Computed example of a mutant assay.
Amino acid sequence: MATLDSDISRDVISHQEHRGSGAIHVIMGPMFSGKSTSLLRRIKSEISIGKSVAMVKSSKDTRYAKDSVVTHDGIGFPCWALPDLMSFPDIFGHDAYAKLDVIGIDEAQFFGDLYEFCCKVADDDGKTVIVAGLDGDYLRRSFGAVLDIIPIADSVTKLNARCEVCGQKAFFTLRKTCDTKTELIGGADVYMPVCRKHYVNNQALIKPSKEVLDSDKARRESCWRQLLL
């Protein structure tokens, strides 16, 4: 019994020592701004000083590989592809999770439990979590929970890309198609980084095009209904 009590005491003391000793670092920006590249650079830096790391990404993102974080330049790193974050300790294994020092999260905007997980990792488990994700969607609205974790972050880095129209700094993501789904996973075939000027100008062109397409679709559906009557 004494041995059991001492083991429990050691576990409690160890847990208390770890509480609040973690950190949260956020990397955000538009598409093609190098978020995944920056994340991988930081992860590899942690590995170089002997830290135990694991990488996680959303299972929704299968553009380049299912079980790797891959940059647009083709640089990859093995990862766990998950539908949510809170299941990670169970899937990874609790003993292995306890030994982790750093957790990297790519495409963080797709995780609805991002805030909850980051609090647990940094506040309760004393680990460092490095988050990379889009801060805004193609309409420049908050995307997912990335902006929600800024108040609890130790550092926030906002990256920029290069406007594909003029070459100036690009802080926004322009969708090339008329699809209105918030979550539309794609690459350069669907999105392009743009500056403020060319975001506004292109949105002015895309909106009328969408209205024409929606009108054509409505007419086609009306014709089919009439034919079926």
Rank of each mutant, 00 (worst) to 15 (best):
His15Tyr: 09
Asp135Met: 08
His72Arg: 15
Glu164Ser: 15
Asp137Met: 04
Arg162Trp: 13
His72Glu: 08
Arg63Ile: 14
Thr173Lys: 04
Phe88Thr: 03
His25Trp: 10
Cys79Gln: 01
Arg162Ser: 13
Gly144Asp: 05
Asn202Arg: 11
Met55Asn: 00
Thr177Tyr: 02
Asp61Phe: 04
Gln203Glu: 06
Asp73Phe: 08
Pro83Asn: 05
Gly50Cys: 05
Val131Arg: 03
Thr71Arg: 08
Val156Lys: 00
Lys57Met: 05
Arg225His: 11
Lys60Leu: 15
Ile49Val: 14
Met28Tyr: 00
Ser142Ile: 05
Leu40Arg: 02
Arg63Ser: 12
Lys120Met: 00
Ala204Val: 10
Ser58Cys: 14
Val190Tyr: 10
Gly187Ala: 06
Asn202Val: 06
Asp124Ile: 10
Ile150Val: 15
Phe92Trp: 04
Ala122Tyr: 01
Ala218Asn: 02
Leu4Asp: 13
Ser222Gly: 03
Asp84Ala: 08
Pro151Asp: 12
Leu100Met: 04
Asp154Ser: 11
Met1Gly: 14
Asp11Cys: 09
Asp106Met: 07
Gly93Asn: 01
Thr157Phe: 12
Ser33Gln: 02
Val131His: 00
Ile152Ser: 10
Lys44Gly: 10
Val56Gly: 03
Ser215Pro: 02
His15Cys: 12
Ala54Thr: 06
Phe111Glu: 08
Asp7Leu: 10
Val12Met: 12
Lys197Tyr: 00
Glu221Trp: 05
Thr177Cys: 05
Ala81Val: 06
Cys166His: 13
Leu147His: 01
Asp135Phe: 03
Val165Gln: 14
Gly136Cys: 12
Asp113Arg: 07
Asp123Pro: 09
Lys217Asp: 09
Asp5Ser: 12
Ser6Gly: 04
Lys181Asp: 14
Asn160Asp: 11
Cys163Tyr: 01
Val69Ser: 01
Val26Phe: 09
Asp123Gly: 12
Tyr199Cys: 03
His94Gln: 07
Ser209Ala: 11
Val12Gln: 13
His18Cys: 09
